[in-house]
Design a binder for these strands. Sequence first.
DNA 1: GATGCGTGGTC
DNA 2: TGACCAAGCAT
Length: 325
Amino acid sequence: MTASPSSSPDVSPEVSREVSRDLTPDASAGPSHALHSPVIAWFEQHARDLPWRRPEAGPWGVMVSEFMLQQTPVSRVLPVYEQWLARWPRPADLAAEAPGEAVRAWGRLGYPRRALRLHGAAAAITERHGGDVPREHAQLLALPGVGEYTAAAVASFAYGQRHAVLDTNVRRVFARAATGVEYPPNATTAAERRLARELLPGDEATAARWAAASMELGALVCTAKSPDCARCPVAGLCAWRLAGKPAHDGPPRRGQTYAGTDRQVRGKLLAVLREAVGPVPQAVLDTVWNEPVQRARALDGLVSDGLVEPLDGGLYRLPQTRPGA
DNA sequence: GATGCGTGGTC
DNA sequence: TGACCAAGCAT
């Protein structure tokens, strides 16, 4: 392994995140691996026809889909994605809107801060990159809402570059097929990043297909709950299966509590504001949750996150003004 | 590194 | 039926 995983140029000063998180190896040819051909061949046969995979989606379509797919299933993303791209076909179109419109159009996809960040990313793309989604991993990573995964995914899927794209699907496939355990650790480890780099095909175009193919395999066959090994193209090579599918051992995977949390209250408050045409009186918001302390905390949180804008007279609405404007 | 952050489908 | 799960990010 080379000492510096990236040669990323043009890292602007405001990029505080470490460039070393870029999983792209230097240009040295990666080794061919026994998993590559069967997984890629399977992908050619079984890949879903998703709108963001079509050529007309372009880098912006890929980026929008990646934001929406962060922790949200494909089936729920599809209709919102279509509406979004029809309404805002270019980053500048979205950037010209009030951020509250993005939050409203986000609908019930969940984690609405993603809508705000996508709006912010569109604004940054418009201001800093002439309206074109940047190609450089470091420039993508500097956009709001874009982390290591999304930067690699856009660079790979939209621009065909060679990056290790390490999402939850790929992590699970690698854990099973290569490492021989049922589930990857809670947090992505250095060992997983190293493995992903080692498995990355040396050829750029092959690496990009490998990224999409290994992710699709995890999504359709090597699923978390019930992997369908009978339909897996690498069942004969899978370390986990060959070891007799040992049960998960180690710390339990992090669960997600929801009922009774601030998150639930925030969701109810924002649902009211999304449906409302104009500003909403506090008294109406008060009806969504009967515990006043938690209700107030949730509303304050939404305001400080920029998801809700307080007006005079105890009125609230989705944000019409840009943060800092 | 551990937490907080929405929503709905599944078994 | 209540966990568990779904192409993560920011702090």
